[in-house]
Amino acid sequence: MRNIIIVGQGAIGLLWYHHILQMINNHGDYNKARLHLLPSKRTDSTYPSAKPRSNKTSTNQVTISYDQYSFTDHNALVHQGKINYAQTEDIEQADLIIFCVKAFQISLALSNIASKLKNNIDIVLAHNGMGTLSELSQDVIKHQNIYALLTTHGCLRSAPFTVTHTGVGSTDIGLLSGVPNLAQQESLTKLLNAALPQVTSHQEINQKQWLKLAINCVINPLTAINDISNGEINNAEYSSTILILLEEVVAVADAEKVNLDLADLKIIVKNVAQATAKNSSSMRCDITAQRMSEIDYINGYIHRLGIKYKIATPENTKMWQAVSALS
């Protein structure tokens, strides 16, 4: 796995870019690997080969250009590094592409480069919510190995190409679509672990996806709608709403043949909110910045499955509609 591309210059994209770049520079097993960044936004008509303009921006007394990034690690140490932008030949030679973009950007971002990709490469989708796999073309699904990556690392983007690692977490990865190849999966997991541990590979990633979805169905919309930090959802005034949201998620998951325990979910949501008490959820950040949110792939996903299985999901539907109105 010598040619790696990160798609997306947001918080999670630069988190992985920085750690993989450090791994290449410091880890003997990977010193021949090549890493490139593919911006998620068009910069001119030659996208995806285009390179962002080189205007300089100053933040936190650190002046960087769009040829560099600034990364503050969890020990408050500031690192600066060079950004190697992906050109067409890099895309054509890619062995691993990690998409660190919003759920609603996945399909278009992948379709823009799909015709240039070799067959049987590893494509990793790192986003909140579920439902993106069904939006991909059958040609992509037929010829590529597609993985889901779920992470609990906290990372905040404060300015273009400037991010801070706000909380150390863990990562889960598993095959969503493709031909299972144990050696290839082990190689992928080993590489990611060398860059940013702890990474755990799962044969059945679906269960982990649903667990994260349940957490997101509570924390994301409640913090976004009420403009509160994560920890505040543990206030008594939200307890009944949280219970109903989780009851609906459990019912829909059961229809999808996924077993979620309501009592366990209540404890997990409470603990996650407490552990990230001062954090602002990604959805709250999106709403505050007047950006499009991933609500369609979180509570909206539960809403659509509720219709499919004729299961009432009024509270999740309410969250979906409320955040959609704010986006």
Rank of each mutant, 00 (worst) to 15 (best):
L156G: 13
Y301E: 01
I5C: 06
G300K: 02
N55W: 12
I20E: 00
A11T: 02
T57D: 14
L188H: 00
T72L: 13
C100R: 06
L211N: 07
R157N: 14
L38H: 06
C285T: 14
Q185Y: 04
R291A: 08
H202Y: 05
L175D: 01
T171P: 00
I146R: 06
E186T: 08
A195N: 07
I295P: 01
N279V: 12
N128Q: 02
V179L: 05
G231W: 03
K56D: 10
L326D: 12
L133Q: 05
N299Y: 02
D261P: 00
H79Q: 13
Q290S: 10
P160H: 10
S240W: 03
Q68G: 10
R304T: 05
K41I: 05
S54R: 12
S111K: 10
Q185W: 05
R157Y: 14
L14M: 09
S111A: 11
N279I: 15
A325D: 15
F99K: 04
N145F: 04
H303T: 10
L21V: 01
L35H: 01
K190N: 04
H18Q: 03
D67S: 15
T59H: 15
Q209A: 07
K190T: 09
D44N: 15
I121R: 07
I146E: 09
M292H: 07
G231D: 05
T72K: 12
T171G: 00
H36Y: 13
T164M: 14
N279A: 15
Q321M: 06
L213V: 05
E232H: 11
N230A: 07
Q22K: 05
T164C: 09
T166L: 01
A322Q: 14
S229M: 11
N234S: 05
S49G: 14
N26I: 01
Y17T: 01
I98S: 05
C285I: 14
C155S: 13
K270W: 13
V250K: 04
G131E: 04
M292R: 06
E256L: 06
T88Y: 12
V199W: 00
Q290V: 07
D254G: 08
S229G: 09
T313I: 00
T189C: 11
L192I: 08
E186P: 02
L192M: 11
K270A: 12
Q144E: 05
N31H: 15
S281W: 14
V252N: 01
H19Q: 00
L117T: 07
K208C: 08
Q105L: 13
I83D: 01
K82T: 12
P52A: 06
N31S: 15
A263T: 12
H153V: 11
D139R: 09
L110W: 01
G8V: 06
L196C: 04
A263V: 08
D95N: 07
V258C: 03
D254P: 05
S293T: 03
S327Q: 15
A159K: 14
I205V: 02
T164L: 09
L15Q: 02
H36A: 13
K56H: 13
V140L: 08
L191Y: 03
V163R: 05
A76G: 15
V78N: 15
S49Y: 09
S281P: 10
I64K: 15
L176P: 00
T63H: 15
L305Q: 02
H18A: 02
L243C: 06
D296C: 04
T72A: 10
N226H: 14
G81K: 06
N55C: 11
T200Q: 03
L21T: 02
D296H: 09
V250A: 03
D172Q: 00
A322L: 12
A148E: 12
D139V: 08
T88F: 11
